[in-house]
Amino acid sequence: EDPVVAVAALVVGLESQVPSIYRKQTPTLRETYRFTDEEVEFFDLHIVSDEIHGERGYQIVLENANTVELQQRCLKICEIGAQMRLLYTTALYYDYVEKEIPLPQLGLAA
């Protein structure tokens, strides 16, 4: 695969999603599960580093996806990465959370 498509897949499509996910998880780890700052350090570090990586990835793709075909491949691989992340987090919800907090309680449709 063209390296710019790989950057789009890994950095833009997957890694750039991590900061927004971890920002929602870390307060729960601290407040509900009483994790210490040291125990949550992994997530805190990835929020910062993945924001930087994600921005660099966006710049690489913007500068190097210089044909319509490459741009379309980058967009498609980002869509696939987002779908994969959604499938992963949905599976986690159904395996670990649904029994305690069903979707109607979350204000979401099934």
Rank of each mutant, 00 (worst) to 15 (best):
I60S: 02
E69L: 02
E41C: 03
Y33N: 08
V4I: 01
V11I: 10
Q25N: 08
P27M: 03
P104V: 06
S20Y: 13
A109P: 03
V48G: 06
E41H: 05
Q25E: 12
A65N: 04
R56C: 11
I47C: 04
L86V: 04
E31C: 09
K99F: 11
Y33F: 15
K76E: 04
Q72M: 07
S49D: 14
I47Y: 05
I21F: 08
Y58W: 11
D2P: 03
G57D: 13
L92A: 11
P104K: 14
V11N: 12
R23W: 05
Q105W: 10
F43K: 08
Q17S: 14
H53I: 11
A109Y: 10
H53G: 10
V97H: 06
E98D: 10
K76V: 02
L70G: 09
R34I: 04
I21H: 02
K99L: 08
E55G: 03
M84L: 13
L29P: 00
A65T: 03
G81M: 08
H46D: 04
S16E: 03
C74F: 01
E38G: 08
P102C: 01
V11Y: 10
V18N: 08
R56S: 13
Q17K: 15
E51I: 10
P102I: 00
V5Q: 00
R23K: 14
D44R: 12
V7Q: 08
F43T: 07
I52V: 14
K99M: 09
C74E: 01
G13L: 02
C74K: 01
Q83G: 05
A6R: 13
K99T: 13
L62Q: 03
E31R: 15
R23H: 10
G13W: 06
Q72F: 04
R23C: 01
K99P: 09
D50K: 04
L45Q: 14
N64F: 05
D50T: 05
L108F: 15
Y96E: 02
P104W: 11
Q17Y: 13
L86E: 00
T90H: 04
G57H: 07
R56Y: 12
L106K: 15
V11K: 02
F35E: 03
E69F: 03
I77T: 15
V11H: 07
C74G: 00
V18K: 04
Q71F: 05
I47T: 05
K24N: 13
Q17E: 12
V61E: 00
E51F: 13
E41G: 02
D37V: 06
V4W: 00
R85I: 11
P104R: 13
V5F: 01
L92C: 09
F42W: 12
V40H: 05
D44G: 05
T26W: 10
P104M: 09
Y93V: 05
M84H: 12
A6S: 12
V11W: 04
I77G: 07
